[in-house]
Write a protein that binds this DNA or RNA. Structure first.
Length: 259
DNA sequence: ATGGTCGTGGGACGA
């Protein structure tokens, strides 16, 4: 089962690029972030024509997440638990049953800039809720993963120029500590485990020719429960997608599970 | 330090 995460930065602008990548990469499951669309106007047909089931959790103009799957999506839940007043569409999860069931969570973690400030406070409180959901997933002792745009640069080697991010919410100590706490509970950072070392990025800013200079950061992650990590047979970053026509500023990151 | 570039929606904000 090939499972990917892709922050597409707007479904309207990215439809053709997304379809082209889907046709060539042929993932079984994809979690999408920043669809920037309400559910009613998400273009379902081209995905359903390709045999994908689709569940969206959108909002107007900003944020928005979705799951695509060639297998049925069961037990779909929208919204990260822990704050009924949170109206931002950043979390969706569902179970996909292949050879065995995998609980798949797609997330778009708050950016948090400028920091300090209310947006950074929201990021950190959101990460505390994420940890609580992660604890529940671990307690189930089943294959599960949380994939998406975490807006966290875990380590210095995950940025081409880490010093430039020193004051940024993506790299501030509390952001990295909250991410590390989830790893320390027993989740595996798939790319870190399978493709160790520096230079593996998932985002290049549109500005200042960041792609041409390979001035990237790694902020799109797949975190696997122990039962999912035991099934991992492959992992990759489709960085070439960033160099195509009308690209997102993020690229797809994927794993292969024996499930 | 500033400006640099996108997407959405049709202005200003988020990233």
């Amino acid at each position: 089962m090939k499972i990917a995460t892709f922050n597409i930065n707007g479904i309207k602008a990215r439809l053709q690029a997304l379809l082209d990548w889907l046709d060539e990469a042929a993932p079984d499951v994809v979690v999408l972030q920043e669809i920037k669309s309400v559910d009613e106007t998400f273009p379902r047909d081209p995905f359903e024509d390709r045999g994908y089931n689709l569940e969206t959790h959108g909002q107007k103009s900003f944020n928005g997440v979705a799951i695509l799957s060639k297998l049925p999506l069961e037990d779909v839940r929208r919204g990260l638990p822990g704050d009924d007043a949170d109206e931002q569409a950043r979390w969706i999860e569902a179970t996909v049953v292949g050879d065995q069931a995998v609980r798949i969570c797609g997330l778009y973690l708050p950016n948090g800039n400028p920091a300090p400030g209310p947006k950074y406070d929201y990021k950190l409180s959101w990460m505390a809720r994420l940890k609580a959901r992660a604890e529940e997933l671990l307690a189930a002792e089943e294959p599960a993963l949380m994939a998406g745009d975490y807006n966290v640069i875990p380590q210095a080697e995950d940025a081409a120029h880490p010093e430039r991010w020193a004051e940024d919410a993506l790299y501030l100590y509390e952001s990295r500590a909250a991410f590390r706490r989830i790893l320390n509970m027993g989740f595996t950072d798939a790319v870190r485990a399978r493709i160790p070392g520096p230079g593996h990025y998932s985002f290049w800013d549109y500005q200042a020719r960041a792609w041409e200079k390979n001035d990237g950061i790694r902020i799109d992650h797949l975190l696997l429960s122990p039962q999912a990590a035991d099934l991992m047979t492959g992992c990759g970053i489709d960085s070439d997608v960033r160099g195509r026509e009308k690209p997102s500023d993020h690229v797809p990151v994927w794993i292969e599970l024996a499930a």
